[in-house]
Amino acid sequence: MLKISDLHANASGKEILKGISLTVNAGEVHAIMGPNGSGKSTLAQVIAGHPGYEVTGGTIEYDGKDLLDMEAEERAQAGVFLAFQYPVEIPGVTNAYFLRAAFNELRKARGEEEVDPMEFLDIMEEKLKLVEMDATMMQRSVNAGFSGGEKKRNEILQMAVLAPKLAVLDETDSGLDIDALRIVAGGVNALKRPDNATIVVTHYQRLLDYIVPDSVHVLAGGRIIKSGGKELALELEAKGYDWLLEPAGV
């Protein structure tokens, strides 16, 4: 589904990603771990199409298409979803309006009919339960005045509504208490299907107790320095990153 080959990317003229290669197949969950400043978030943002990063080399193939040739909105319409580390507040635009606008953009892109507010309400009812959010949240402005946990749950709610093929969760666990973490992870697990894939970017192993990965990759200094199964995450939790960094020359 996703094939990243020798990806290089700059931010403000500084090289952050220095040759990333990663293949993710349908039905798989991949965890990207690594110390702060290793390039994890950059990789997530580059996949989603953030214009602040300049891709200087390599390719990303998604569903047989050249992902790097697509605008951020085209990627979303093609099924790519990024759960933001810092979700943006949009005062004055209700969650209900925002979600329905996004939902309909995706439907339009697939040549489907748009849904009206009443139909959308029905769709939302079930999705709200998934992340244990109250319906009143739909009438509040997008993320405005939301707590950290509410913002992250709202990201998973959007993911549930937009039903992506490829979901990238960027430090979705940061700042979450254990209950919120359980709800967020439960949502992600419930949305897992054989035909979609998830990339979980995280600093801590904690989230991986709830979202069990098929593969774990350690990103450091802009490169993947080690890949392994889910047991690698436990090893990192016990030993930290240092034992990997020095042999890799980071």
């Binding site: 909105e73 933001f84 949009i90 005062p91 004055g92 925002f98 953009e105 937009l162």
Partner: peptide, 20 residues
């Protein structure tokens, strides 16, 4: 970028943020 990453095109994203 947040709006675009949800599939909302550039013009509509700008309009929504102007309204906001």
């Amino acid at each position: 970028f947040y709006l675009k990453s949800r599939g909302i095109g550039s013009d509509n994203a700008r309009a929504l943020l102007t309204y906001a």
